[in-house]
Simulated scan of single mutants.
Amino acid sequence: MDLLQLRYFQAVARYEHISRAAQELRVAQPSLSRTIARLESELGSPLFDRQGRRIRLNPYGAMFLRHVERALSELDDGRRAVREARDTGLGRVSVASETLLTVTHLMGSFRADHPRADVRLFQSTVQEMDRRLRTREVDFCVASQPLTGTNLDSVELAREEVLLAVPPGHWLDGRESVTIPEIADEPFVTTRPGHWQRALLDRLFAAEGLTPLLSCEGDEPGASQDMISAGLGIGLIPAMSREVGTETRVPVAWVEVEAPDCERVLTLVWSRDSYLSEAALKFREFITGTPFMAHRLGLPDARREAGEAGEAVAT
């Protein structure tokens, strides 16, 4: 049994699909199949149930995978620790966020304070965040939805109300609040499944036994307000977009939603078992030590109140 066999097995177990795993590993499919067969022969037990071209991890494979992932993670952490100890910098910190605009000013402030840190940023859905943390591709996730992985620690960064944005002149323009049943037939501008706006929209409608009508689905929440202003629909937008920089943003009207927990909760999430470089430790201290909203707004002094901001950012 060698390291290559274990990494091949990990990829096949993740996809439960030989050709997809081979594509990720950049190896020929027959070669990958032979490697898995040799591993099963050495262990004396099949690790997958096979039905034609379909494979499924069986109980023996699931048991073995837990040990393989721990072993490979330890090896990856050891290699990373040696590399960073050898370097003159602080090492690398990798962060995943559902939308890059949420953390743009934050990451810029951190790099300005720690120029020797190697900072990497990834845009990810909540499903990708779980995978990236599990495979240790990232150190932290800035998440707007709960992550379901095991051995995760988190700290709440911010909590903000989510409002309904409507085009100027819309029949809701001027209303203070609205219920979900009142807007059941309105077309919504939202994100694809996996993003927090879509999850919140689906949850609010499901609580009323309804399904939202969608006029536009996208991958970048920051574009929603522009599309709403253009009359393509209505949508859920964090209240911070209303509170700052109205002169530099496209015009929309804001309405409160009469529904429980119509809010966005941002959390910093990390795996408690993962190795954290000096840069990662400093990043965690940095992001949790000052008001997140101030960072998010790009204030010159991040410790000032968020309401003093003069520049808007799309959320």
Rank of each mutant, 00 (worst) to 15 (best):
L266S: 05
P193F: 11
T248C: 09
I237H: 01
R38E: 10
T246S: 14
R203Y: 12
T315L: 12
L214A: 10
L4T: 13
Q29N: 10
G52I: 10
V313G: 09
Q145M: 15
P59Q: 13
L32Q: 01
E186D: 04
A28H: 08
L157G: 00
G78W: 12
D118T: 11
L121R: 02
S154W: 10
A239Q: 06
A37D: 11
G307R: 09
E128A: 11
R34V: 13
R80F: 11
G233W: 01
R111P: 00
G222P: 03
Q197T: 12
S154G: 11
W270D: 00
R264M: 09
A13Q: 00
W254P: 00
R50T: 13
V82K: 05
Q29K: 10
R7S: 12
A11D: 01
P146V: 13
R249M: 15
T88L: 15
V142D: 00
V12N: 00
M227D: 04
T150G: 08
R20V: 06
G149N: 07
A294H: 01
P30Y: 04
S229I: 07
H295E: 08
F64G: 05
R136F: 12
V250C: 08
H67G: 14
E278A: 11
R83F: 11
A223C: 07
G108H: 09
V68N: 05
A294M: 03
T290D: 06
R50S: 09
C216V: 14
Y275F: 10
V257L: 01
R7C: 09
L39S: 02
V82P: 01
T290A: 13
V68E: 04
E42G: 08
I55E: 01
T315F: 11
S229Y: 03
L152D: 10
T191C: 07
G222N: 07
E278I: 05
R134T: 12
D185I: 07
G44H: 08
A85E: 14
E16D: 06
P221I: 10
E208M: 08
W254R: 02
E217H: 13
E137D: 15
P260D: 08
E182N: 03
E98C: 05
D113A: 15
P221N: 14
F9S: 01
S241Y: 06
A184E: 02
R249V: 12
L65S: 07
S277E: 01
L47P: 03
G218Q: 14
M1A: 14
R7D: 04
G310L: 09
I287M: 03
L121Y: 06
D273E: 15
A184C: 05
